[in-house]
Nucleic acid binder design. Structure first.
Length: 849
DNA sequence: CTCTCCCGCCACCCG
DNA sequence: CGGGTGGCGGGAGAG
């Protein structure tokens, strides 16, 4: 904690911006644009605090001009030079954000950090610095400058679910400066965010941050509009026609169905709350409209997969642009821009649709789905289907098809594995990509991919979803629903598709509070747990939680819990589940269809048999399942095994998502009690077979267990419990494992991915983290969904004040007033802003206080 | 080569 | 008019 505190403080203080940047840079190396930061940093004094910074600076600065954006970093991504590098990559893949944080942390505590792979990486950088630098310099890759990364950074600055009371003002200038980009780029981001009502313009250079509170609502509206516009039909039509981009004839289509006028008005539906939409009228807002339409396409698509060409065509039509090729090209560019932002929001992920013609770039919706259906059976179905999918996947892998999940499972290696793995038509780029959520998504993707492939192959009926049909011919329809796979830390859980269960695809209405950063983690959970969430929410409501938390939890998630009996675990391999899988034979469809309740049961049963059970997804009916799991978990036998309970709390809001992993063995006792409490939150728990865990980076602190069971006050129990109450919503992920499979370093991994920083927003998580003492290293701290938190004996904090969310938010807030009109801002900027990381840190700190 | 998509010119539009 | 916005597409990095 201490460390954390320091870190937090540091972060909190404006002064550090530099550090952050630096840090980021380091991270950037992985994925983000670094140079920007650097540049800023450079000009300014280096951070005082960290030696590390220096090193970094060194790295960066050397040759570049401050201004120039040359990047240094990153080559890592591109090329893994060493195992470490690989690790980094993995991490990055898992969760870039986390990484960033970690790095930052590392910066703060250079020495300590050595452990982490991250650190290593950093060190490498440092050490190799010169060489690296050059290297980097040479390649300031575009990726670093990508809008997606930029957007992530941007999102990291604000809480996904800001308190209603708080009004966060976004100063474009400030943001641009802090992020080291031209304002023009910020417009791109903001416009897309605005289309989703995440922000609204309040004045020149000023936007108000709304967060994701109403995201589900917005999406619902968009979905409705999309339905009205018959986008689905259009898509189907176009897909069929896709032949040539050139040929697409919209005119006709367009007329068919949809009123153009609406499009323009899309923004109108903006929530009451949002002033934003008001719009300046400006000519078009086309980007905003395009963004909305693009989202609508996903929402109305059964497959949830939209190819860019189809989207571009539709958009062109609507925009009434003359369907020129030229236009088409331009549209596609814009779509990429939008897609990058949406990806950062964890609403979509990139995939490729394999068609006869070949691969086509496409994006798959991984955000909340089925708004309308809330909770009903629909979810269940999906979930079941998901489970089915997973199984299939798994099987596939077992069969020899590649399945990411399996490979993924393995800890570090997993990531690598993942990347390559997908043979499927769909590939998730993101595996490697920076975003944590993406990582998760990857898993999902993979799944889908599998299914898709099957579809392609014919093994599985693509038919799954009829709807999918339309497009599907081309695109995999797999499940419309979201992916379920929940991979906490990147690799971890994935494996278990088992989790699948988790999934509720769409439920999570707002789940993602996490905003972009967090998304991944959240998503997963959310998806999985949507149902749970619902249940939980109910419970929670009953209990009365602090509103803020509540929100969070609402959003998020439901965690799913998988419980793997230790026996099972033993018996089953993490992978084993697949075995169950027979899946192939079973058409996804069937599964899906059935999956529903029956499916669940089946699944669960199977799962159980296999060793895992998904509690929640099961459905709302079982909210409490979690508890069961825990009980089941007991894992009396081998604590050592590692069975762990993975409890994920919904945390959407940012912080929240906590996932707790309790050692299976211990858990029972300790858990038991706690669990009782838990129920309240209905935190999903996953128990991972020891083997499984093994691979995972999960951190486990022996101490934790103890505390948990014995010392309620101490972290574990309390933590969870506490959260539970208040925060169900918040979901911090804790991994407690008897055995620390993973080294602390590894821990980093977990942390990284999942949630991104966004979490900070949530209260709980911070709290928890505090209490638990999240390691500084582990990015987890805040809310990453997946992030693993080591529980050490936490210093005392356990308690919870549970909630301090407010504080944290504050931190997040940008200085509304700040924005200076002046341009100079750029120059000056640096100091303040903090990168997302800071935010995160701050949050924790807040908690600490 | 294709896919992505960064970059920034320059047109809008508002005050 | 100046400055905030943001459409737009050239051109280049990445694969």
């Amino acid at each position: 904690m201490e460390i954390n505190c320091l870190t937090l403080k540091d972060l909190i203080n404006p002064r550090q911006p530099r550090l952050d940047f630096t840090i980021e840079d380091g991270e950037n190396a992985h994925k983000e644009n670094i140079f920007v930061d650097r540049s800023r940093m450079v000009p300014k004094t280096p951070i005082k605090n960290e030696p590390i910074d220096l090193s970094k600076q060194k790295i960066f600065t050397p040759e570049r001009n401050p201004i120039t954006p040359v990047k240094l970093v990153d080559r890592q991504q591109a090329e893994p030079w060493t195992p470490t590098a690989n690790l980094k990559m993995l991490i990055s893949a898992a969760s870039p954000d986390i990484r960033d944080r970690e790095k930052k942390k590392e910066l703060f505590r250079p020495i300590e950090n050595k452990d982490d792979a991250f650190t290593d990486s950093l060190q490498l950088d440092v050490v190799g610095g010169s060489a690296v630098d050059e290297f980097e310099k040479q390649r300031p890759s575009r990726k670093q400058k990508s809008l997606g990364l930029l957007c992530q950074k941007f999102l990291a600055r604000y809480p996904s679910y800001p308190l209603s009371t708080e009004k966060t003002t976004i100063s474009l200038d400030e943001v641009a400066v802090s992020l080291g980009v031209e304002r023009r780029r910020i417009y791109d981001i903001v416009n897309v965010l605005e289309s989703l009502h995440l922000v609204s313009r309040v004045a020149k250079n000023q936007y108000g941050w709304h967060g994701r509170h109403s995201l589900s609502k917005t999406l619902r509206n968009l979905q409705r509009l999309g339905e009205e516009q018959k986008y689905e039909e259009q898509m189907a039509f176009l897909q069929q026609k896709e032949l040539d981009l050139m040929e697409y004839k919209f005119g006709e289509r367009k007329k068919d169905g949809y009123p153009d006028s609406q499009d323009q008005q899309l923004l109108d539906f903006s929530e009451p709350d949002y002033p934003s939409s008001s719009a300046h009228s400006r000519k078009d807002k086309s980007l905003r409209i395009m963004s909305q339409k693009f989202v609508m396409l996903f929402l109305v698509s059964k497959t949830k997969v939209v190819t860019l060409d189809v989207a571009a065509k539709i958009l062109i039509e609507e925009s009434q642009d003359t369907p020129d090729h030229s236009k088409f090209k331009t549209k596609v560019r814009r779509l990429y821009d939008i897609a990058n932002v949406l990806t950062s929001l964890a609403l979509i992920k990139k995939v490729h649709v394999t068609e006869e013609r070949g691969r086509k770039p496409a994006f798959k919706w991984i955000g909340p789905v089925d708004f309308s259906s809330n909770g009903s059976a629909g979810y269940t179905l999906e979930i079941g289907s998901l489970a089915a999918v997973y199984r299939q996947k798994i099987e596939d892998s077992s069969q020899g098809k590649v399945f990411a999940s399996k490979r993924v499972v393995p800890p570090s290696s997993s990531l690598n594995a993942i990347v390559p793995s997908p043979s499927l038509s769909v590939d998730s780029e993101y595996c490697a990509s920076p975003l944590a959520h993406q990582v998760f998504s990857v898993a999902q993707t993979d799944v889908q991919a599998f299914s898709i492939q099957k579809g392609l192959n014919g093994q599985v009926g693509v038919s799954l979803t009829p709807a999918a049909c339309d497009a599907e011919s081309l695109k995999p329809a797999v499940l419309a629903s979201q992916p379920l796979v929940y991979m906490p830390s990147s690799s971890l859980f994935m494996l278990y598709g088992s989790l699948q269960e988790g999934p509720t695809p769409g439920l999570s209405s707002e789940r993602d509070s996490g905003s972009a950063e967090v998304p991944a983690a959240k998503e997963l959970p959310s998806a999985l747990s949507a149902q749970k969430r619902l249940c939980e929410e109910r419970k929670l409501q009953e209990k009365d939680e602090p509103a803020t938390k509540r929100q969070n939890r609402e959003c998020e998630d439901s965690p799913l819990s998988l419980v793997m009996p230790k026996k099972q675990s033993e018996s089953t391999n993490p992978i084993s589940p697949k075995t169950m899988g027979h899946s192939e034979s079973t058409p996804l469809e069937d599964l899906h269809v059935k999956s529903h309740t029956p499916a669940e049961k089946e699944v669960s049963g199977k799962a159980i048999a296999n060793g895992f059970v998904s509690s929640e997804w099961g459905n709302s009916s079982r909210n409490t399942d979690m508890e069961k799991p825990t009980e089941e978990n007991e894992s009396p036998h081998e604590p050592s095994l590692l069975q762990c309970l993975y409890v994920q709390s919904p945390a959407v809001s940012g912080l929240n998502g906590f996932n707790v992993l309790l050692p299976g063995s211990q858990p029972s006792p300790s858990v038991g009690p706690s669990s009782s409490q838990l129920p309240s939150f209905s935190v999903p728990c996953m128990v991972l077979p020891s083997p499984t865990l093994g691979p995972f980076p999960v951190l486990y602190s022996p101490s934790m267990p103890g505390p948990v069971s014995s010392a309620p006050g101490t972290l574990p129990n309390t933590g969870p419990v506490n959260f539970g109450l208040p925060g169900l919503g918040s979901a911090a992920h804790l991994l407690i494992g008897p055995a620390a499979l993973v080294n602390s370093k590894t821990s980093a991994l977990p942390s990284a991915d999942p949630q991104l920083q966004a979490q900070p927003s949530l209260d709980l998580s911070p709290v928890m983290s505090r209490s638990y003492n999240i390691q500084p290293e582990s990015p987890v701290y805040m809310g990453h969904p997946v992030s693993v938190v080591k529980l050490q004996q936490s210093p005392a904090p356990l308690t919870p004040k549970s909630i301090r969310r407010t504080h944290r938010e504050t931190f997040f807030k940008t200085p509304g007033s700040l924005r200076d009109p002046v341009l100079k801002r750029r120059e000056r900027n640096q100091s303040r802003n903090t990168s997302s990381a800071q935010r995160r840190l701050e949050i924790p700190s807040a908690g600490t206080d």
